[in-house]
């Protein structure tokens, strides 16, 4: 876990800040949590690790790097999903059966006739905020993904970042046999 933490911080200078500043510590913790939620909730599945989304076999997921949404709108989209698209809702209570709708004025009854995808994992409100913070600070407004972005996501050793390195020659993994 510590290794991951250092990778997220990404530089020795930031590491010093991380170690000595309580405020930065909290912020970095939140970002780390946000990134972990981004992975666990499988945002990667459509938006990819870099958030750029793009074409896909299941249609295009919007680019979070190019998005113009602000934090409240991102939180709403995560919570409520986007009806008629592949973007699922991540809050268990988004579409209640009573007439106190949480999202777009819709209740569970409306979902019988219109399509809103349901996420594979539900997130709590704090988790939705953390993942929105992560998108705002680490993805939104960034240019093309680069090696530093990739290492911040996967860690130093990942082959997934080889494509951003020059002459990225890979050692073959060592298989292991159990008997």
């Amino acid at each position: 876990m510590m290794v991951m933490k250092f990778c997220v911080v990404g530089s020795a200078a930031a590491l010093v800040v991380f170690l000595f500043s309580g405020t930065a510590n909290a912020a970095e913790n939140s970002l780390e949590t946000g990134q972990a939620i981004y992975k666990r909730a499988n945002c990667v599945g459509c938006h990819k690790w870099h958030g750029d989304g793009g074409g896909g076999y299941g249609g295009a997921a919007l680019s979070l790097r190019k998005t113009e949404l602000e934090k409240p709108q991102i939180m709403e989209t995560v919570k409520c999903g986007r009806p008629g698209t592949g973007m699922p809702y991540f809050s268990r209570d988004s579409y209640p059966s009573d007439d106190a709708p949480q999202c777009y004025g819709l209740t569970s009854k409306d979902l019988e006739t219109m399509h809103v995808a349901q996420a594979g994992v539900f997130l709590r409100p704090g988790e939705i905020e953390a993942v929105a913070d992560y998108v705002i600070s680490s993805i939104k407004g960034k240019g093309d993904p680069n090696l530093a972005d990739c290492v911040a996501f996967f860690g130093e050793d990942s082959k997934a970042c080889g494509v951003y390195k020059s002459g990225g020659h890979h050692e073959l993994p060592t298989p292991s046999t159990t008997q």
């Binding site: 990819k48 076999y57 990942s158 997934a160 298989p175 292991s176 159990t178």
Partner: peptide, 20 residues
């Protein structure tokens, strides 16, 4: 089960470009 050979496939590297 007599044996299992695990090739230690890199999940992120390959899983990111497995279309299907």
């Amino acid at each position: 089960l007599l044996w299992k050979m695990d090739p230690k496939t890199d999940h992120d590297w390959a899983g990111a470009v497995a279309c299907c």
